[in-house]
Lab assay of single mutants.
Amino acid sequence: HHGSGALAALHADGPHAGLPVTRSDARVLIFNDWEERKRSEPWLRLDMSDKAIFRRYPHLR
């Protein structure tokens, strides 16, 4: 199991509170979210491209 239990660094406060600090933090969040959702949506594709990251977390651009 590759990303399970990996912890992402999140901004503690300010405008980005609760959001990932780096792209690799964002990838951890996206992976964990996908892993949760694919139980009920097995067709869901995992997209951890930069484009997917920016779409979801525009502050990382």
Rank of each mutant, 00 (worst) to 15 (best):
G5K: 11
H59M: 00
L10Q: 15
H59W: 02
D50M: 06
G3E: 09
G5V: 12
P42C: 06
F54I: 09
D47P: 01
P15T: 08
K38Y: 11
P20N: 12
R27D: 01
W43G: 11
A6R: 13
R55S: 14
R61K: 13
S4N: 12
A52M: 07
S24M: 15
L60Y: 01
A12C: 14
A8V: 14
D25H: 03
H11K: 04
W43I: 03
G18F: 04
L10I: 09
V21N: 04
M48W: 15
N32I: 13
R61V: 11
L46P: 03
D50E: 09
G3P: 09
R56C: 07
R39Y: 12
H2P: 12
H16T: 05
L10Y: 05
G18L: 04
G3D: 12
H59G: 00
L29V: 09
D50T: 05
K38H: 14
G3I: 14
L19M: 05
G3V: 14
R61C: 13
H59N: 02
K51F: 13
D25W: 04
A6W: 13
V21L: 07
S4P: 10
K38F: 11
T22A: 06
D47N: 05
W43F: 08
L7W: 07
L29E: 04
P58H: 02
F31W: 07
E36R: 13
H11G: 03
R61T: 11
K51N: 13
G14N: 03
H1S: 13
G3N: 13
L29G: 00
R61G: 06
R55M: 13
S4C: 14
E36G: 09
H16W: 15
H16E: 03
R55D: 15
G3Q: 14
S49Y: 01
G14L: 03
R45W: 06
T22N: 07
M48A: 05
S40V: 11
R61I: 13
P20Q: 02
H1L: 06
G18E: 04
D13M: 10
E36F: 12
P58S: 02
E36M: 08
P42D: 02
K51S: 13
R45V: 12
G14S: 04
H2E: 12
D47M: 02
H2G: 05
R61F: 08
G18R: 05
W34C: 00
N32F: 07
R56I: 12
I53M: 05
L46H: 01
H16R: 04
A6S: 14
E41S: 07
Y57E: 00
R56K: 14
R27T: 04
A26H: 00
H16D: 06
R56H: 10
F54W: 09
G5T: 11
P15M: 07
D33N: 07
I53F: 01
L60H: 01
W43Y: 08
R23Y: 15
R55V: 07
G14T: 04
H1T: 08
